[in-house]
């Protein structure tokens, strides 16, 4: 394993060296330390959202809407919940994180940068040739990732596999899988739902970013997934419904998940697509389209002025 890891590090180093320079102004990132202090987390989430807007505008494409809706969930996990060490990425006891809705990766890349896994300077290389920051997460390009994602309906099964391996190895690490609401339409999600309950994977915690919008419109119009919490409950999961932008509710749910034994937990988090930017909120137009430079300036201003 050691050799493989070293090889991976070398690949990243090589990729980063060739990554293109960016004209976008990058701020200094404050050192990472874990906290559940809501004021601090709000500040971090604001910076992550600004990163997302800048990265996707710089790339000229990407999925800002679903990145913004998942931001508070990711910030809560990385700063206030998960056991991990950014300076020891291969620590065997680390909690695992999988972004099954891989298109929301600008949020994850920003979180990786602000926790110190990757250099903040490379964020503007998103989606550009030679960048470790692929349009959908690829662990060959970015070994910091636990798994490559991007094709919906795969991540929860991978998480189950990691949890089974942890059980065999006598490890107590937990596995967090963030999924999309549109992703719930993939049949394989429900195969994974059955497996997770069947094997009583109480170290698995799924979180659904329920922002109610997908490429072609509202989830309700495209292919309704309601009643979602009831479905997961019926599949044998401990199910918790929360406001996915309320840190108190997020942490209460994560604590409840950790305390739940004998079955996995699914947190259904109600969110707002495009959260934090007025003209992106609940706007399906920003599912798979980035802001123009003008819109970017306005979005950054709004975020800076928000509480």
């Amino acid at each position: 394993m050691k050799v493989k890891e070293m090889k991976r590090e070398m690949i990243t180093a090589k990729v980063m060296k060739t990554a293109p320079e960016s004209p976008v102004n990058i701020e200094r990132v404050s050192p990472f330390s874990q906290t559940r202090d809501e004021k601090v987390l709000r500040e971090i989430a604001r910076e992550v959202r600004k990163d997302i807007i800048r990265m996707t505008t710089e790339a000229g494409s990407g999925h800002p809407g679903g990145s913004l809706s998942a931001t508070d969930l990711l910030v809560a996990l990385f700063w206030g919940e998960m056991r991990h060490k950014p300076n020891d990425r291969y620590w065997a006891d680390r909690d695992r994180f999988i972004l099954s809705k891989g298109h929301g990766c600008p949020a994850l890349y920003s979180v990786y940068a602000r926790t110190g896994y990757i250099a903040h300077e490379i964020l503007p290389t998103l989606r550009k040739l030679g960048s470790p920051l692929q349009g959908h997460p690829c662990m060959i390009h970015l070994p910091t990732l636990e798994i490559s994602t991007g094709s919906l309906g795969h991540g929860l099964s991978v998480g189950n596999g990691m949890a089974l391996a942890g059980r065999l190895d006598g490890k107590d690490y937990r596995v967090y899988v963030v999924m999309g609401d549109g992703e719930q339409q993939e049949g394989s999600v429900w195969e994974a739902a059955m497996s997770g309950a069947h094997y009583k994977l109480d170290h698995v915690c799924g979180i659904i970013d329920y922002n109610h919008l997908e490429t072609e419109g509202t989830v309700e119009e495209v292919m309704d997934i309601a009643p979602l919490a009831e479905k997961w409950c019926a599949f044998g999961w401990h199910t918790i419904e929360i406001d996915g932008h309320n840190f108190d509710e997020i942490f209460a749910a994560l604590d409840e998940a950790k305390a739940t034994k004998g079955k996995p937990t699914m947190i259904v988090a109600q969110t707002v697509k495009g959260k934090g930017v007025s003209f992106m909120e609940n706007n399906v137009g920003f599912h798979g389209k980035s802001a123009t430079r003008e819109q970017m300036e306005q979005a950054i201003k709004e975020l800076d002025e928000s509480e």
Binding site: I147, G161, M162
Partner: peptide, 20 residues
Amino acid sequence: MGISEADMMCTAAGLAVSGK
């Protein structure tokens, strides 16, 4: 894994990435 091949392949990936 029951009759769920898609889940089986990705579960195997999760096991493989964890050293199995």
